[in-house]
Design a protein around this nucleic acid. Structure first.
Lengths: 226, 226
DNA sequence: ATTATCTATAGATCTATAGATAATGC
DNA sequence: ATTATCTATAGATCTATAGATAATGC
């Protein structure tokens, strides 16, 4: 119904030198390009010029959207926690037993890490530096959720754990280990990874190993529903 | 019995500007300083000048010992596999059952990763780049050892595994995950980490969970001997 | 006039090269 | 003379700043 022809690129502002037209939010495009480069070459190893080129724009414009290079990294780090923190909120509103909640949190977390490469950015050494402390504070929220679920699982007698801190770190660590080796090009699917690893992690926390089947079955049923 | 006084610094060559005297092999000192910085700030994020300063010498001298910055990284990466590959060789010369061998390999590997911070260097994005391909070839030897032990364990009926590749990657991944979170400053000891994680990994491979206790007991006994 | 982009560049790096210097050895 | 180190620096970056330009909007 529009009187304008769709293929005429009517857009305010000087055209891009690269010819590539901006599709959607420019900041998002920059972030995507940066995520790929950071994963391949590291944060310091990827120049703002390279990132800009990958996003189809000039370095000067990138700086206009992200005045400091560090702003790009901060945005990516923060974004990488959103999904898991949303899952935590959802689960804690449910009335599921702690072992069921933890299984689902772990399973979801693994899937997320398999599909979104940028979730491995927190492993970059530069992420440890003080400018990114607020990211680690957020992440501590996620770690507490794991810890609380493990602790609650012990209280109801489902889990048996000596050292709560060690069990928590080992569980989160095993979830995150998937970013070290999962390769989207290989035959193994994210779902298969998630099933395998989640079984290993929850299985090792359970007091009675044979409870695992019921937990897995319940989670699979829940997934089958809308 | 020496006629020379020990505190006179008789040494050929121009003295260091830093005043810090070289203790032992200079290349080793440079590598140690570089490992710390690479872990903290990444490879590209650590300049040769910084590394030299940390080792108590000037940048020009560092370049004399390692003509390319990349040579430092190559040396560190290569070194990080030595320990585990030696363990593999030792174990395969033994007549232990595959599940016992794998438990010990995993356990040793975790200990090593806890004590030697530089073993996490392979996680740096820069390590993936083609100049370091020979490191990955060596590492593939280690991965094969894991894979073969899991496969052998299945054949003798101790392990039950659907997907050999997935089981291998998950096992190595879980071992390596320790570098993500282990912190020497915390209360948890390397030994406690190794026990916990190795139990989780081998436990999940076993067909009959109750075999785990015997494997752990045998490994602990072997460690107690000289 | 407003907007989105561009180009040009200053100042601060960083790696690797070249050659000088301050010890001991003979 | 030999050795281990140094200083100085060229050339190539890299980030962030400043201001110009090429579109549409009115």
């Amino acid at each position: 119904m529009s009187t304008e022809s769709d293929d005429k690129p009517r857009r305010v502002g000087r055209p891009r030198a690269s010819g590539v037209e901006s599709e959607g939010d420019v900041r998002t495009q920059i972030l995507q390009a940066a995520a790929v480069l950071f994963v391949q070459q590291g944060y310091t190893g990827s120049s703002t010029r390279e990132i800009a080129a990958a996003a189809g724009l000039r370095q000067g414009l990138l700086v206009h959207y992200f005045p400091k290079k560090q702003d790009i990294f901060t945005a990516l780090l923060t974004r990488s926690l959103d999904e898991s923190l949303a899952t935590v909120a959802e689960l804690s509103a449910s009335s599921l037993a702690p072992e069921d909640q933890l299984y689902r949190l772990v399973h979801e977390g693994i899937l997320e890490l398999c599909v979104d490469r940028s979730s491995s950015l927190m492993l970059l050494p530069e992420a440890k530096q003080p400018e990114f402390a607020s990211f680690w504070a957020q992440r501590e929220v996620l770690r507490s959720a794991y810890r609380n679920l493990i602790s609650a699982g012990c209280e109801v007698g489902s889990f048996a754990v000596d050292d709560l801190t060690l069990a928590t770190d080992a569980a989160i660590g095993a979830v995150e280990s998937v970013v070290i080796w999962f390769d989207a090009d290989n035959a193994t699917t994210p779902a298969a990874c998630a099933d395998h690893l989640a079984g290993m992690i929850i299985g090792h926390l359970l007091d009675d190993q044979s409870d695992l089947d019921a937990i897995v079955a319940a989670a699979n049923e829940a997934l089958a529903e809308p």
